[in-house]
Design a protein around this nucleic acid. Sequence first.
RNA 1: GGAGGGAUGACAGAGCGGCCGAAUGUACCGGUCUUGAAAACCGGCGUGGGCUUGCCCACCGUGGGUUCAAAUCCCACUCCCUCCGCCA
Length: 435
Amino acid sequence: MIDLVQLRREPEFVKASLARRGVSTLTMDEIEALDVEHRRLLQETESLRAEVNELSRQVGEAHRNKDVATAQELTAKSRVVGDLERQASEASESTGNALREMLLMIPNLPAPDVPDGLDDSDNVELRRWWVGMDEGLDAPTYADCQRVPHWETGAELGILDLESGAKLAGSMFPLLRGAGARLQRALGFFALDRHLDAYEEIQPPTLALTETMMSTGHLPKSVDDMYSIARDGLWAIPTAEVPLTSMRRGEILDEAELPIRLTAQTSCFRREAGAAGRDTRGLLRVHEFVKVELFNYCTPAQADAAFADVLARAEALLQALGLTYRVLLLCTGDLGTSSARTFDLEVFSPGVDRWLEVSSVSWFGDFQARRANVRFRTADGSIELVHTVNGSALAWPRIWAALVETYRQPDGSVILPDVLAPYMGGETTISTRPV
RNA sequence: GGAGGGAUGACAGAGCGGCCGAAUGUACCGGUCUUGAAAACCGGCGUGGGCUUGCCCACCGUGGGUUCAAAUCCCACUCCCUCCGCCA
């Protein structure tokens, strides 16, 4: 949620920032008007309530003095004022609700260095990395045997079974088997082990309350992209960011315990309602996938370092796996609702000949913390909202795809990078002939 | 799923419908005393909101209700504990 106090203090700046992301100034004018009206009604309500409180106090006093006549007179008076108070507070409440509903739909202010743009074509590529680049290799090259899409290799090797997944849950629910399943497990173990030097490992629930989904900004705005378990009032999480952000919801943290760094590998569920029919082949876009998430609660002063840390960890994994990737700075048009600044990491998939998003590293400022009401007490005793930072490291199905394509051999087998050997029982070759 | 008990400030723990935002203790912060520390004593010590910055309003698990007035009475729900049933 944006800061209403900031909107009052510097309305022009807030409106200009939001206009960059397509929020109409008229909408913001409406919010401002509602805010003014709400405060007017609030004052009216509170002064009437103060009057009722005072009259009630006098009633009590009269009773103690056995002054029945005065007590009755004051009770009658208080009843009248109480009716007025009820009317005022109903008006105030409905105005407040209208204001809150609008505010919940307003996205975060983009950071000043976020470029303007309409969609992903306006994102800015910051850098690329490929194996051999550090040794002077100008560009990665790919042999014909690497130009085979992972769904073909996956079927050939019996490690990706899209038909079975579709039979169980419908299309875009893949099923991994054998070495393919083990590869995804290996990736998760590999990544988590590398994060445990600084991050606490969490296994959160993968269903969440509406309130939990509100805190990160996934509801109400992105309701069509979420799976719901209506009967129990629960939602399937689209990312571990959802439970991790709410883990300390409503708490006042000690500055000394910040940054709090959490990591979790969970299933992530996405209806992909807006992307129906696009990029649906193989593992390019799926409804359920496994991802390791890195998360930080931090002070505003720590936010830059936290962001850099998450990004560095995601990049380090990609480099360790030997995958070509690029780093993008998202433009205003491609930024998620809650984010002030996001870097996307995309791996190159030689078999499909496309870049695939495998991580999104975001700084949310205090936007999510305001919704989740997570604050910290500074050394001098004042209380401030924390900042939240998170990023994937990494989302596995697309990494799986890039690995199977990048490491495909002329004989059709796949030889995985050595870093995964300890997690694959020492066996890095996947071939049709069982070993 | 069934039966019972509980939910109050950082923690423990009081609280006859009115003078209760809330006793008391611990913890914490400041001071006196002390060479220093401890002890003792004194003072402070929740969060949010509004505006006329001095006041007002809200908050005792959550939501509703009764009342001039609710931490206190009534209803529903949530969570925790104990027991029974079922079960990975």
